[in-house]
């Protein structure tokens, strides 16, 4: 499976087909979910209207962390099978994941002001999520520096794998330590969010995930196209 996808020509063929499906499908779902979350669901009994921030906040948190998992997987595949397409995938994922991590922090802060009475507190969940954003930025800088110096990509790949240690800490921070952030509301088997308020969240989780995939594929295709142009220019000038 990995080796079949590792062929750039075959990858491009599949990616060309998938990109518009993921991108437009995701965008349509997100628009539908936001419409539902802004107009169709009831306000919360305590948080009132500010509860609607979760329709953006929760998918952002999910993709900020999911983005790092996929980046680490790509790094792992690159280290073991040494395929350049895996390195390309990690490079395409990083800024997209970082944007979602930042969105999660910003929306959380806006929600925290009316709910908790503070923009920011150094509690376990908030601090570890901020750390994840910093690791994203550090990874992007390291990967660029490595490429500029003609490195073989091994060092950023190692950081990509090492960074996964943070993911379970973010996930369980609200269980291990007492935090200002509330515990988990949503898991595969149960939800403490009333069904009448839940469905736009599920739509947006799906929609943002598809959008994420679409944008990553776009970035990978444009990077591949750039490489081909560079290679052609090199051949013409040689």
């Amino acid at each position: 499976m990995i080796h079949a996808l590792a062929n750039p020509t075959r990858f491009l063929k599949i990616a060309r087909l998938l990109t518009p499906l993921l991108f437009w499908g995701g965008l349509a779902l997100v628009l539908f979910g936001c419409w539902g979350g802004l107009t169709q669901t009831p306000p919360d009994y305590l948080q009132k209207e500010s509860v609607r921030i979760m329709y953006i906040h929760v998918p952002s948190a999910w993709l900020g962390m999911g983005g790092w998992s996929s980046l680490a997987l790509a790094c792992f595949a690159f280290l073991v099978w040494r395929h350049p397409l895996a390195a390309l995938a990690a490079r395409a994922i990083a800024p997209v994941g970082a944007v979602f991590a930042a969105l999660c922090l910003i929306t959380g802060s806006i929600w925290g002001r009316p709910t908790w009475g503070t923009w920011w507190e150094w509690d376990g969940r908030l601090s570890t999520m901020l750390l994840l954003l910093f690791i994203y930025i550090g990874w992007i800088a390291l990967e660029r520096a490595d490429r500029e110096r003609g490195g073989d990509g091994r060092i950023p790949a190692l950081l990509g794998i090492a960074g996964t240690a943070l993911l379970p800490v973010i996930r369980y921070s609200v269980v291990w330590w007492n935090t200002l952030h509330q515990g988990q509301s949503l898991s595969l088997t149960k939800s403490t969010i009333d069904p009448s308020m839940l469905w736009p969240l599920l739509v947006n989780l799906m929609g943002f995930s598809l959008l994420f995939g679409g944008v990553v594929l776009m970035r990978m295709r444009s990077a591949l196209a750039e490489q081909r142009i560079e290679a052609r220019i090199r051949r013409m000038t040689a």
Binding site: P42, P43, D44, Y45, L46, Q47, V51, M54, T115, W116, G117, T118, E121, L180, Q182, G183, Q184, S185, T192, I193, D194, S196, M197
Partner: peptide, 18 residues
């Protein structure tokens, strides 16, 4: 000298809370 409200993980419409 400062109070923070802690919200729990339950979200519901006012009618259900009532």
């Amino acid at each position: 000298d400062n109070l923070l409200a802690k919200h729990d993980e339950r979200y519901m419409p006012p009618e259900i809370a009532d």
